[in-house]
Amino acid sequence: MCDSCDCGGHNDQVTVRKPGKVYEVPEKSSRTVQIEVDVLAKNEEISARNRAYFLKNDILTLNLVSSPGSGKTAILERTIGDLRGKATMAVIEGDQQTSRDAERIGATGVEVVQVNTGAGCHLDGSMVHRAMHQLDLVPNSILFIENVGNLVCPAMFDLGEAAKVVIISVTEGEDKPQKYPQMFAAASLCLINKTDLLPHLDFDVDACREFAGQVNSALEFIEVSAKTGEGMGAWYSWLLERVGR
């Protein structure tokens, strides 16, 4: 094909014939094939295998999703410190670049692996599959998967988790569930973080819960401050009720 004006590429339509001569018209046929395949089928197949492995080994796997800067890593640091001796935990960190989060989590002493997605905006089943093989996962434990900070794309990609936990911080708008409903529809639990800052902000917690409840009436909420530890006990109970089941 000609690169500059796109003039080529139609050689199959060109015919060269002598007058009076009979030419056979080459048979060209096309057919439509019904395939009915889900575009995400491949990811779902890999994630189903991840999920089967987690279930077989009683590993409670949670997919933590939020905007960048809502405090996912801070919540994990505090959780790992406070649940030491009560639960065995491991972490898969997802970011476009750097191992900063994995270094922070690694400093707490738990098993951690960093996935850098490069240009990618979400983790997928095969990234988690590769990452989990690098972790020494034990039965009756918790695996936290901290997804890339993004409230849009990670909603579509199953990783094999038992549940999605969506985190919103009170420094964001309470209308986030209205702006990004897909993620709140897909989550089982919503952590409202940085509640220690509430006295300084206009964030309306009740309105946030109401907006999120409109897209997902089954969504549970826990208000926490990873900084002061306030409310974290309810989150720990939520986790410990589910681990090893």
Binding site: K28, V39, S217
Partner: peptide, 19 residues
């Protein structure tokens, strides 16, 4: 808050193949 169903599909229905 109606009960919502469907609308989540992303599916390749068919392909037309040339011989």
């Amino acid at each position: 808050c109606p009960a919502i169903s469907g609308g989540q599909e992303l599916k390749v229905r068919s392909l037309t193949i040339e011989d």
